[in-house]
């Protein structure tokens, strides 16, 4: 399949934006400049970039504890995201909720969720609403392989298929749920095999190939938009870094990580762009430099933002207390 040069460059830029944002956050955390937990998706960027490139702005997503990438790819503001990581008042949750909680209704980010499997039924509900309201919006639920054992996976696929809703379930199967290899938590490690039992199609795609993810996602998103119902799309991928920053990773071999790092989704697309004469080394380096500058600006914005106040602690619990 041929794609517009802009599309491919967009995929590349999104992946670099995610990678550099998360590496920057990881450095800040290591330097004790960020409080709390941080889960990065380094190595998995093609999933977020590929799927979100197939979405419109009014389409919606729900994501997970490992959701920076999905939010960035869906159009979240880097400054507000970084400010949330710093716990500043300008953050997406006024600095009260941290890295695992981003909501931005302006670009269709319903929420990132620190409860494994928590976002799936919500995505079904948003898809139900979209159809009832007569709109065209499609909702994507991102989740990991670990969420497949949760009841909400079963419940959500059951309802979505039954009602033929415009929702796409995107499982990023990175072979681990926290410290547990998939062989410890799943008998059949091909998540998409489950789909037919619920009455919806299942597909697997190389989750380290942004173009392949984009193509697969475009097909299933447009199918959903056209009233064809939900799909379970499994992206086979791998996280390079720990489950959380600081994870000693005693549960896996270095060789395994090294092997997957050979399949770097960014390097892969970069090579394809240059080989296909869509861009030069210089073009892509410049693009990367621009992104680094955006991230630097995001950090500066966050660090110069005020801390939340005692009033912020109490606000937004109910509508009456919403400022």
């Amino acid at each position: 399949m041929r794609h517009a040069r802009e599309t491919l460059l967009g995929l590349y830029a999104t992946m670099v934006r995610i990678r550099e944002f998360e590496l920057c956050a990881a450095r800040l955390l290591a330097a004790n400049r960020l409080p709390g937990f941080l889960h990065t998706s380094v190595g998995q960027e093609a999933c977020a970039a590929g799927v979100c490139a197939a979405l419109r702005r009014e389409d919606r997503i729900t994501t997970t504890h490992r959701g920076h990438g999905h939010c960035i790819a869906k159009g979240a503001d880097l400054g507000r995201m970084m400010a949330e990581l710093f716990g500043r008042r300008t953050g997406y949750a006024k600095g009260r909720a941290g890295s695992m909680h981003v909501s931005d209704p302006d670009c269709g980010i319903l929420n990132a969720n620190a409860i494994v499997g928590g976002g799936l039924p919500m995505a079904v509900g948003a898809a139900y609403a979209a159809r009832l309201q007569g709109g065209e919006a499609v909702t994507v639920a991102f989740f990991g392989d670990g969420a497949v054992a949760e009841g909400t996976f079963h419940e959500s696929l059951t309802m979505a298929a039954l009602w033929a809703l415009p929702v796409v379930f995107v499982c990023e199967n990175n072979l681990y749920a926290e410290m547990s290899h998939i062989s410890l938590h799943m008998k059949d490690p091909d998540v998409h095999h489950r789909a037919p039992a619920y009455g919806l199609p299942g597909r697997a795609v190389d989750g380290n190939d942004a173009v392949a993810v984009y193509e697969a996602a475009s097909a299933v998103v447009e199918r959903a938009r056209a009233g064809g119902g939900p799909t379970l799309l499994e992206c086979k991928t791998y996280r390079w870094r720990g489950h959380f920053e600081g994870d000693p990773q005693r549960y896996r071999a270095r060789e395994e990580v090294a092997e997957w790092m050979e399949r770097d989704p960014i390097r892969r697309l970069r090579a394809a762009l240059i080989d296909g004469a869509a861009a030069t080394e210089g073009d892509l380096d410049r693009r990367r430099q621009e992104i680094l500058a955006q991230i630097e600006a995001a950090v500066a914005f966050a660090e110069s933002s005020p801390e939340p106040t005692a009033e912020d602690l109490l606000s937004d619990v109910t509508a009456a207390g919403t400022s």
Binding site: P121, V124, G125, A127, A129, A130, L132, T152, E155, T158
Partner: peptide
């Protein structure tokens, strides 16, 4: 049937669908 929706027996799912639908503009 769209506004008065029979569901399977899945309480987390029912309430979760209501959450998502409410976030997306309905009053379920």
């Amino acid at each position: 049937a769209e506004r008065v929706r029979d569901t399977p027996i899945c309480e987390a799912g029912i309430v979760g669908v209501a959450v998502g639908a409410a976030m997306a503009g309905l009053r379920p």
